[in-house]
């Protein structure tokens, strides 16, 4: 078949590329701005002089972050949390979405289960009751406090459920006819075929775990168990009336590192690993997944 590229199509392709590049710039510029601040001197940053390029270039903020043993320790904790947490999350999302993606005839009580989960998307007890429960289930000061309470993310599960529904029923039927039970269908058929959705939801899960910092503050008592973002958040020294009672050493520390440069360096250190992992997950968003095993 001849595919003629009409003029309008050519124009569209060009404008599309330009347009999307502009939008991409919109997304990148704030990062460049923040990166520049993190590499600028304290006084320049405090005076608001930094726009898109460092002023008074210095590695000080990063050196401050990097020379602390705690930094690398918390980095390790974060990796552990992300790997463990994402595996747990993805596993639960996967096995929970599968039964719920069946139709109501195939699975009675499906609707009941679905609403049990769905309601938790709208109602929550809030911080204090959750804290009490976490405490009473013995998770305090353990990495599991960062993993179990959010182990089943209903939103992600619902997404996965919908992706499952898009998988042609014929695959399911063919396998069942061949005598496969639900477990085998799930792992041997659904798993390979849902890679794009697993990659997508996996990405969100990994990002969520990587960026979470507040739960660490709430549930962990020992600083050596802090994941990276929690640790970084404790570095921000609050400048308020305490300033009047600072000693010379404290002031010196404050002098060399303004809140601004530290904060932006912190943001970068926090976002960098994700930006590195992202391209690897990207190749799973493959266009045109072949479902060649099914004849329409």
């Amino acid at each position: 078949m001849l595919r003629k590229q009409t003029l309008s199509r050519k124009l569209f392709v060009v404008f599309n590329a330009i347009f999307l590049t502009c939008i991409s710039l919109l997304g990148i510029i704030p990062f460049i701005h923040l990166l520049s601040i993190s590499l600028s001197s304290n006084t320049a940053a405090m005076a608001g002089e930094v726009k898109l390029w460092p002023v008074g270039f210095t590695w000080d903020a990063y050196a401050y972050l990097g020379e602390k043993v705690e930094f690398f320790r918390s980095l390790g904790v974060s990796v552990k949390r992300v790997v463990l947490g994402s595996l747990v999350n993805m596993f639960l999302v996967f096995i929970t979405a599968f039964p719920l993606s069946k139709s109501n005839d195939q699975f009675k009580f499906r609707t009941v289960y679905v609403w049990i989960f769905a309601i938790t998307m709208f109602f929550g007890g809030g911080l204090i009751p959750t804290y009490i429960i976490v405490k009473n289930t013995g998770l305090m000061d353990s990495i599991w406090a960062l993993i179990l309470p959010g182990a089943l993310n209903v939103w992600n599960m619902v997404l996965m459920l919908n992706f499952f529904r898009n998988i042609p029923k014929e695959l399911d039927e063919a396998a069942t006819i061949d005598g496969a039970g639900h477990w085998r269908v799930l792992w041997q058929i659904y798993l390979p075929v849902s890679l794009p959705s697993i990659a997508t939801i996996g990405l969100f899960t990994i990002v969520g775990h990587w960026n979470a910092w507040f739960d660490g503050i709430l549930y962990l008592n020992s600083p050596e168990k802090y994941p990276l973002q929690t640790y970084l958040s404790t570095l921000i020294m609050s400048l308020n009336a305490q300033m009047s009672s600072m000693s010379v050493e404290q002031l010196k520390v404050m002098e060399n590192l303004s809140e601004k440069t530290i904060r932006t360096a912190q943001i970068f250190m926090g976002a960098l690993p994700i930006m590195v992992v992202y391209p690897f997950l990207q190749k799973y968003f493959v266009k045109g997944m072949t479902v060649g095993s099914v004849k329409e």
Binding site: T43, M46, L239, A241, M243, S244, M246, L251, M254, E255
Partner: peptide, 9 residues
């Protein structure tokens, strides 16, 4: 305490 901060900067 202003001279202590921020006027020192």
């Amino acid at each position: 305490w202003y001279p202590n901060w921020p006027l020192n900067s």
